[in-house]
Design a protein around this nucleic acid. Structure first.
Ligand SMILES: [Zn+2]
Ligand SMILES: [Zn+2]
Ligand SMILES: [Zn+2]
Ligand SMILES: [Zn+2]
Length: 353
DNA sequence: CTGGGGACGGGGCCC
DNA sequence: AGGGCCCCGTCCCCA
């Protein structure tokens, strides 16, 4: 165990070292002479992620961890296993042939869209949907289990990349500004800010973008699309994570305890609480009343060009260089879905976690 | 609040 | 097999 501790310190894997000290009954912060490179990254992310610090590596959701039910990770067992070469010890997860892969069924295969001619692929649902005729989606072969956090990592060469999330190592440095990255593809994206390269042109206007996601975002400007709709209150969002925030938080009208809301004057003659379905329909009607007044709301942005964020003009390292993985629209329009024909059944009981 | 920008990390495909 | 390259979901933070 001391050897493991020493190794963990050398590698700068704090959580393993902590676990070892835990087992050894030491509290000590023995001077870790190793890697000051892995200094506390000023990550703004919450620390409950699978990250360096905690003695017991914790992932944000239990399903992230394979067979990890709140016990401390079997650090000793795993690490001792290979007698020092545990990094290679990442055993391929034996796939039982009979099981339909239950745990982490990936939801969509992703088409490959090369920059410079990515219009068609990005035009709609992105990676989703298109089940190529070429056969079933190949399960990613050789899933491996991280010896530190027990997480299953799919993909042949992906474990080293994942391990860097524990060590904090950032091997890739920008030659122009010195910023370091944990992944080379992130460095490559970053370099576009220096070179001014904008590999993603809009097919219907001259705008060009740094990221495919910026283009996607821009395309939704053209279409005015808000694909993500709350099933309860029918508010529509341009970004999926905003919908999730809406659903988790208390901002969904339907989840609110039915605020008094200037109750309609003539109080019901007696104590007759409105039926359960009342609030939804009532509030929905309020939405519509409030938002539908006015002519036919054409939903098409007349001049999306005015909303470009892309600025073909902007030179290298222009202002924010912003780009983000969000489909989305910046236009303000009716955020409530038009009443489509179907009008989803309101009995769609959504189980909150 | 809400929308938007950015960071992070996983997965798929290909070489 | 390893890794480049890309797409994507999800989170945090800020205006
Ligand atoms: Zn891990
Ligand atoms: Zn740079
Ligand atoms: Zn355009
Ligand atoms: Zn809602």
């Amino acid at each position: 165990m001391r050897d493991v501790l020493k190794g963990a310190q050398l590698l700068g894997i704090q959580c393993v070292a902590d676990a070892c000290r835990d087992i050894l009954g030491e509290t000590g912060d023995a001077p870790t002479d190793a890697v000051e490179e892995a200094e506390p990254l000023p990550s703004r992310r919450k620390q409950d992620r699978c990250s360096v610090s905690p003695a017991r590596p914790v992932c944000r959701r239990s399903e992230d961890i394979h067979g990890y039910e709140g016990h401390p990770p079997p650090a000793a067992g795993v690490l001792m296993n290979g007698g020092g070469t545990w990094l290679q010890e990442a055993t391929p997860i034996p796939r039982r042939p009979e099981d339909t892969p239950s745990e982490e069924e990936e939801s969509g295969l992703q088409g490959r869209a090369t920059p410079h001619h990515s219009q068609s692929q990005l035009a709609d649902g992105g990676g989703g949907g298109v089940t190529a005729v070429s056969g079933r989606k190949r399960k990613s072969q050789t899933p491996q289990q991280c010896p530190v956090c027990q997480k299953i990592i799919h993909g042949a060469g992906k474990l080293p990349r994942h391990m860097r999330t524990h060590t904090g190592e950032k091997p890739f440095q920008c030659t122009a500004c010195g910023v370091r990255f944990t992944r080379n593809d992130k460095l490559k994206i970053h370099m576009r800010k220096h070179t001014g390269e904008r590999p993603y042109p809009c097919p219907s206007c001259p705008a060009r973008f740094l990221h495919s996601y910026d283009l996607k975002n821009h395309l939704s400007l053209h279409s005015g699309d808000r694909p993500f709709e709350c099933p309860l209150c029918h508010k529509a969002f341009a970004r999926e994570d905003h919908l999730q925030r809406h659903r988790k938080g208390h901002s969904c009208l339907e989840l609110r305890p039915r605020r008094p809301r200037r109750t309609p004057g003539p109080a019901p003659s007696s104590d007759s609480p409105p039926p359960e379905s009342f609030s939804l329909h009532q509030q929905h009607a309020e939405h519509m009343a409030g938002l539908l007044e006015g002519p036919g709301l054409p939903l098409r942005i007349p001049y999306p060009e005015l909303l470009w964020r892309a600025v073909a003009v902007a030179g290298p390292m222009g202002k924010d260089g912003g780009s983000s993985p969000h489909g989305g629209s910046t236009i303000t329009r009716n955020t409530y879905k038009e009443e489509e024909e179907e009008e989803e059944e309101e009995e769609e009981e959504q189980e909150e976690e």
